[in-house]
Amino acid sequence: LAALHAEGPLAGLPVTRSDARVLIFNEWEERKKSEPWLRLDMSDKAIFRRYPHLR
């Protein structure tokens, strides 16, 4: 499970980098069924690119 911001401008976004990794992994797991070539990237760089508020 990932903790998400409940309200405000960040509502629905992950609270920590660990939470972001959970979301990225879950999405990758779903997408790899139809796109088996996808690589999993959970590096800090990938997290910041996707969720800049975690910098």
Rank of each mutant, 00 (worst) to 15 (best):
S43M: 02
K33Q: 12
S43D: 05
E27Q: 07
D44L: 14
R55M: 12
W37D: 14
P52T: 02
R21I: 09
K45M: 11
M42Y: 08
L54F: 04
R17I: 15
V15S: 03
M42D: 08
L23R: 03
H53M: 01
L1D: 11
N26K: 13
G8V: 04
L23G: 01
T16S: 12
E29C: 14
L54S: 00
K33M: 10
E35A: 06
I47N: 00
L4F: 07
F25P: 00
R17K: 15
L10E: 04
N26S: 11
L40R: 01
Y51G: 00
G12R: 06
Y51C: 01
G12H: 05
Y51I: 00
R21G: 04
H5W: 13
T16E: 07
Y51A: 00
L40I: 06
K32P: 02
E35G: 03
S34E: 14
W28V: 02
P52R: 02
F48H: 10
H53N: 03
E7M: 09
E7V: 11
P52F: 02
E27H: 06
D19M: 06
R49G: 13
S34A: 12
L23D: 07
S43Q: 02
L13V: 03
Y51D: 00
R50M: 09
G8Y: 04
H53K: 00
L40H: 01
G12K: 06
H5P: 04
W37T: 13
N26G: 08
P52G: 03
M42F: 09
S18Q: 15
H5D: 04
H53R: 09
M42E: 06
R39A: 13
R21T: 04
D44N: 12
R39C: 15
K45E: 15
N26Q: 14
F48P: 01
R55L: 14
D41N: 07
P9G: 06
L38T: 09
L13A: 03
L10A: 05
L10K: 05
D44R: 07
V15K: 12
D41G: 02
D41R: 02
D19N: 03
E7T: 13
K45P: 09
R55Y: 12
D19P: 01
N26I: 14
A3D: 11
L40W: 02
K45A: 14
K32C: 11
S34W: 09
D41S: 04
I47K: 00
R17M: 15
G12W: 04
D44Q: 06
E27V: 04
W37E: 12
A3M: 14
R50F: 06
Y51L: 07
K33D: 09
D44I: 11
M42A: 06
D41T: 03
L40Q: 02
S34N: 14
E29L: 15
R31H: 07
Y51F: 15
K45W: 11
S43V: 02
R17D: 07
L38I: 10
L38H: 09
A11M: 12
Y51P: 01
S18D: 14
R21Q: 10
R39Q: 15
L10Q: 05
E7C: 13
L1V: 15
A20D: 00
F25N: 05
E29D: 09
P14H: 01
H53W: 02
E30V: 12
L54P: 00
D44Y: 09
K33T: 10
R50L: 12
W28A: 01
G12Q: 05
S43R: 11
W28F: 09
K45Y: 12
A11F: 12
L40E: 02
W37Q: 12
T16Q: 07
A3H: 15
A2L: 13
L10M: 08
L13W: 06
A46H: 11
K33S: 10
D19G: 06
E35I: 06
P36T: 06
L10V: 04
R49S: 15
P14L: 01
V22Y: 10
W28P: 00
S18P: 05
E35K: 07
E29S: 15
A20T: 00
E30M: 11
P9A: 10
L23E: 03
R31M: 09
L1G: 13
I47T: 02
I47V: 12
V22R: 13
S43N: 03
E30A: 11
P36S: 07
V22F: 10
R31E: 04
R39I: 14
L23Y: 04
Y51R: 00
L13G: 02
F25W: 11
I47A: 01
L4A: 05
R17S: 11
A20I: 01
D41Q: 04
L1T: 14
I47H: 01
L40F: 05
Y51Q: 00
L38S: 07
E27I: 06
N26V: 11
K32W: 08
L54G: 00
R55I: 14
W28S: 01
M42L: 15
A3W: 11
H5L: 05
P9Y: 08
P9Q: 07
A11D: 06
L4W: 02
P14G: 01
L23V: 10
E29R: 15
F48W: 08
V15E: 05
E7P: 09
G12N: 07
L1I: 15
P14C: 01
D19A: 09
E7A: 12
A11I: 11
F25S: 04
E30I: 12
D19K: 02
